[in-house]
Design a binder for these strands. Structure first.
Lengths: 178, 178
DNA sequence: AGCATCATGTAAGTAGTTACATGATTAA
DNA sequence: TTAATCATGTAACTACTTACATGATGCT
């Protein structure tokens, strides 16, 4: 039950249309909670029906016409409730680690190329995060909001750093396998 | 489409019944691909229908009776194919980071306790992984299979190390917020 | 006989994915 | 006027989750 709350957060940061949100879920918010436009439109419908958001009054609210939403007080309250509520962490699922474990049984043929490809992807993502850090978090900015958002970005940077290091190590191990 | 392959891997490591698998998915394999018994039984049915596994011949294959499975050649081939095939990494979803970002908008009330709880959980998991490493990977063992499985465990250890460090840092930041 | 636990399932609901549909706007 | 793109959706399917059902086995 996190997608509606991801959308509420995004809309509180800035009222948006479905397509705006879709784009923001391709970067920013989407870095740790991805969503497709189909999911987003469906969820916007539900949030509106629940009275958590409302469409900004516009001329023609028809198909093909842009429709922006803003969060209502009930939506903000629900987001605050959810943020503070105890939640069990979801168990992870990582297909690459699974494939490595499978490779221990059926052989490593073809896997090395995948490791190299993943390394490249993670290095790119790391570079992107570092750009964002340089651009959005210069040393002088220091509000509470900035600190929290910077903390989230640091998690992303450190995670990508871990993956690049681990994949580099894994590739070196592959070269030393019989 | 990873669960069937997780099950094939587990069954190749050791033929098992549904409940055996469920237990193994609560540790080991489940550390990076979790599954409930309901998922497992359903998937065992499909894998059997597809000719990838078969039930070991037993007396009474009835409800309440233990039923063990082994992997057939077609199942091993499918696992090898899947292991080597290019796959796009799934975008991550992390509710805790999402909550932190929400907190930047609606306030951090109640979140600190959650961070402390998560830190405790990750520290425990890290301890567990280190026990496994000590027990299952003594320096003298060095087959290709061992190396690959050790690599997977190292990823787990390093990930948990990252989380404990990041959460410690986050808690310190929370204390310095206005 | 009664109860806990082992073991295998069914059913219903929710979330996420993939494929397709449709109208509006803009540029060649 | 056609094509590309913007923008909002519908439909069908797959994966996962939650709750419940049912028989077998062993213990007291």
């Amino acid at each position: 039950m996190s997608l509606p709350h991801a959308i509420l957060t995004a809309l509180l940061e800035r009222p948006s249309s479905g397509l705006d949100l879709t784009r923001r879920f391709d970067r920013s918010i989407g870095y740790f909670w991805s969503a497709t436009h189909q999911q987003i439109y469906r969820e916007l419908g539900r949030l509106e029906a629940d009275g958590h958001i409302r469409a900004l009054p516009a001329e023609v609210p028809a198909r093909g016409q842009k429709k922006s939403y803003e969060v209502l007080p009930a939506g903000r309250a629900e987001l605050a409730r959810w943020t503070a509520a105890p939640q069990e962490p979801k168990p992870h699922r990582d297909a690459l680690l699974l494939r490595l474990r499978a490779a221990a049984v059926v052989g490593t043929d073809g896997l090395k190329g995948e490791l190299a490809r993943y390394l490249d992807l993670h290095e790119r993502q790391l570079g992107e995060y570092r750009e964002i850090e340089k651009r959005d978090f210069p040393p002088e900015r220091d509000s509470a909001e900035d600190r929290l958002r910077h903390l989230v970005l640091r998690a992303g940077i450190d995670l990508e750093t871990f993956w690049t290091q681990w994949l580099t190590h894994a590739l070196a191990e592959f070269d030393r396998l019989p």
